[in-house]
Write a protein that binds this DNA or RNA. Structure first.
Length: 497
RNA sequence: GGUCGGAUGGCCGAGUGGCUAGGCACAGCUCUGCAAAAGCUGCUACAGCGGUUCGAAUCCGCUUUCGACCUCCA
């Protein structure tokens, strides 16, 4: 197993991955808050960490991948207030919190499936772990790092900071925070502005509420991840991932809570993906500039000229290193679509390549280069999951494959071993690790037979130099989204959009 | 205001001291009835100004500029 290095946000440097239990890897990733439809910005962490967990598996680790769903809090849908239980008559007209959460959870899962993200091993919900959260809060109170006020419980950040490195993850100084923290709801209850809520007392109109030792209320935002990650991965686990915008206060708070509750920090390696920007600004709730996944897939958005296949989005995201910002534009997506189409066609061609290569390579220089491009893929992934470089190398291979097919490169140029290595590299890295898959559905036999007939008729017409007929067939099929290609060897292939 | 991170060719984007990715677009050529595809070739950039060095996109300083976080946020 090669050594895997990646950037640990906590130490701000690349580190060698050494799991707590040899052969096993625990990965926790902050999932979405399901109070609205997922947008493109959400796609980034889930695709990024899908590749991370796929790669860990590829290296031979037994991976437990946990990704939560945040379904607790104060939810309402735009223009539709959550139902007020007191007003029973309105019940069916209004949105039940559970209905809302369910709707967006299903949409999110559907999106993940379209992106070919593998399901996490466990997908815990915040509402399903209220007991665990309450119990953790009790422990923190017992240890003297939290206090109750009017049915709410707050974490004592100052006390914590006196003996632990609060702010290390997000690189900030507590004193600076104090001066700049703005007025927030319930601020007057806190002993200090830096304190954060572990449990919030629910006002009467608040629908999501649970019984607790401190009265009816609901959990604070940060405690769910601490409770669920420790439950399923242990009090200390290997990797915690999420978007950079969660570093503070969410992850910083997680560290503080867990450190007090369990007596030691929760996470060995922190990983954060960078943001997707649009016109240079972060795509997000507060900017009101999201492009929803459904809009992306349908093309139904002012900024989009066309619909984009989920695989194009996945490819687009993986072409950039996960720690760089990725600026969105319609042009960039179009470029990705063309690029991915070309790469995938080369891959399909490679799989169909006849095994005519001999044991020795006629072009040893090319053979060596190809072998090197293939081998480097592993190095690139082991160096902070550099998917951009992996794709660049696969693109180096594309002209070789196309050249063999087109006759510009001799079929004997590469050794049989190298051809096999190339096939293996594409399959393992493009499909298994990067998780790319074909954009088009498999052709059915019936379609294939019908097209074979048309191709045959067209070939006959061409033989008679009846180009009017042959072009008519080609053009009409093209306008139906079926592209015919006259190959060099006289055969005709087709692609369906 | 505080903290942090960027500024790379027409566009998107890798890259931490010399070997100067890759994609898209563009131009020429090859192939071709035409087209598409494919192949070959070309386009050689690192915000500005200083400094370190034999040598810097890469290290240091300053300037300009953009952004992220500090508040729900992937």
């Amino acid at each position: 197993m090669p050594d895997l290095y990646f950037y640990n946000s906590y130490t701000r440097q690349k580190e060698k991955f050494e799991p707590i239990t040899p052969g096993y890897a625990g990965l926790y990733v902050c999932g979405p808050t399901v109070s609205g439809e997922s947008h493109m910005g959400h796609a980034r962490p889930y695709i990024t960490f899908d590749v991370v967990q796929r790669y860990l598996k590829h290296l031979g680790y037994k991976v437990r991948y946990v990704r939560n769903i945040t379904d607790a809090g104060h939810f309402e849908e735009e223009g539709r207030e959550a139902v007020d239980k007191v007003n029973e008559k309105a019940k069916l007209e209004k949105m039940e919190p559970m209905e809302l959460v369910h709707k967006y959870t299903m949409l999110y899962r559907q999106g993940m499936k379209l992106f070919n993200c593998e399901d996490p091993a466990i997908e815990p919900t915040a509402t399903g772990h209220i007991i665990e959260q309450i119990s953790m809060i009790e422990t923190i109170i017992e240890k003297g790092y939290a206090y109750e006020v009017n049915g709410s419980v707050y974490f004592d950040v100052n006390k914590y900071a006196a003996s632990y490195p609060y702010g290390k993850l997000s690189g900030r100084v507590l004193e600076d925070q104090l001066e700049t923290t703005r007025e927030l709801d319930g601020q007057e209850e806190k002993r200090d502005k830096a304190d954060f809520a572990l449990w919030k007392s629910a006002p009467p109109q608040h629908i999501m509420r649970w019984k607790s030792p401190w009265g009816e209320g609901f959990p604070g935002w940060h405690i769910e991840c601490s409770a669920m990650s420790s439950k399923y991965l242990g009090e200390t686990f290997d990797i915690h991932g999420g978007g950079m915008d969660l570093q503070f206060p969410h992850h910083e708070s997680e560290i503080a809570q867990s450190t007090i509750a369990h007596g030691h920090p929760p996470v060995r390696y922190w990983m954060h993906n960078n943001m997707i920007t649009i016109n240079g600004k972060k795509m997000g709730k507060s900017y009101n500039n999201q492009i929803k996944l459904s809009e992306l897939f349908s093309g139904n958005h002012p900024m989009l000229q066309q619909a984009y296949h989920p695989m194009v989005i996945r490819f687009y995201i993986l072409q950039t290193h996960y720690r760089s910002t990725l600026d969105f534009s319609n042009e960039a997506l179009q470029a990705s679509e063309r690029a991915f189409r070309r790469l995938w066609e080369a891959y399909e061609l490679l799989n169909k390549l006849p095994a005519t290569a001999g044991e020795t390579a006629a072009d040893s220089e090319l053979d060596a280069k190809v072998a090197q491009w293939c081998r480097e893929c592993e190095e690139f992934m082991c160096d902070d999951f550099n998917t951009a470089k992996v794709l660049a190398n696969l693109f180096e291979l594309a002209p070789v494959i196309n050249g063999i097919k087109g006759g510009q490169v001799s079929g004997k140029a590469l050794s049989a071993t190298t051809v096999a290595l190339m096939k293996d590299t594409f399959h393992v890295f493009l499909e298994e690790i990067l998780g790319m898959q074909a954009m088009q559905a498999q052709q059915t036999d019936k379609l294939d037979k019908a097209l074979s007939l048309l191709i045959e008729i067209r070939s006959d017409a061409k033989k008679r130099k009846d180009f009017a007929t042959s072009d008519q067939i080609r053009n009409k099929l093209a306008s139906a989204g079926i592209m015919l290609k006259d190959e060099k060897d006289g055969t005709v292939s087709y692609t369906v959009e």
